[in-house]
Design a protein around this nucleic acid. Sequence first.
RNA 1: GGGCAGUUACCAGAGUGGCCAAAUGGGGCAGACUGUAACUCUGCUAGCGUAAGCUUACGGUGGUUCGAAUCCAUCACUGCCCA
Length: 376
Amino acid sequence: MTFELQAQDTKSNARAGLIQTDHGPIETPIFMPVGTVGSVKAVHQTELADEIKAQIILGNTYHLYLRPGLDILERAGGLHQFNSWKKPILTDSGGFQVFSLAHRRKIKEEGATFQSHIDGSRHLFTPENVMDTQRTIGADIMMAFDECTPGTADFDYASKSMAMTHRWLDRCIDRFDHTEPKYGYHQSLFPIVQGCVYPDLRKRSAEFIASKGREGNAIGGLAVGEPTEKMYEMIELVNEILPKDKPRYLMGVGTPANLLEGIERGVDMFDCVMPTRNGRNGMLFTRNGIMNMRNHKWVDDFSPIDPEGTATVDTLYSKAYLRHLFISDELLGLQIASIHNLAFYLWLVGEARKHIFIGDFSTWKDQTIKKITNRL
RNA sequence: GGGCAGUUACCAGAGUGGCCAAAUGGGGCAGACUGUAACUCUGCUAGCGUAAGCUUACGGUGGUUCGAAUCCAUCACUGCCCA
């Protein structure tokens, strides 16, 4: 994998770049649709590629390990073969599940034991076997196994958690460096900065992560309960330390406004379930603001879903029709909303990239945030 | 023509003397959702009021009772069965 810095905004830390992987290029800043169990929910691969113009998608180690399981993934020839996505894939390590499934896991120095949310069986995830699993999945970008610390953690907990994540990282790196890809193409390992909302911890963590000299770096443990302003502060602080010549990935973030604020602070990669999950729940993001498609106000609005939208569904269908689909629990509504939202997210980061090249990113960002945060 | 059962909020449907402006489900109206246990979750859903509260309400009318969706009479309507 290579990363080329192509443009740097003069008034902010925003930058545009190009990642090259064995599964093709990724133009940054980029948004990566989340496909936890090997599927971006309600969206075909053809739509992902042609309509949404996704360049890379996510998978999840925890979920794919439980289902379909490593044997099937290996026999399929890896996740790319299994789900017919020919472009790059990044897998999360299960570190987020240490947070989101906190009530059904136990953390020890060795690793985290999960009680499966599917059948209750117990499974130990260690830095070593999480590397092995991601080798089997065949992700282009593998994530280190970390503890995603809640944004509300106290300093003492955050400090100990961060230290353990660092020890886990060393074990991840050791295993990663002593194993080979299974399917003949290159895989990268991204370490993850933790440290909750504590500047001292974030600084130490960023220095530790940067010192590992991996091909890219990630910022984790944000948008997990802390105030948004704290999140922005942490991004700013961490990005002063993370190397400029490597891609920076802000994990799990976020709202369209979060993306622009992140880009301004030097983030290159984002992922979030928001466009797909909120889409399935009837919420549409557009360049003019946010719409709840279940609202009565759309009942007889026969104008296109998003007249300026880039996806076919945006002009093919009306707001009234989409509202009807949601009110009627029709599956097509989930598909249209998911495609629209993802296309919007990809359009947004693409525009950001353009404006970084043009040199007016900050001005454009301020105007855009005002519009996209409107409630329609 | 006779017998039986029933009529409760937008719909379905509990409730059979006070704890009932009335369970529950659906529908409707809003809100939430950030490395996905999520086509999920939360709130509201007679009127006025921020609220306490007040008013109108369980087919109609008239009773019994301190008190009625609940008991009685009668009328109307609906369903089933028999002729």
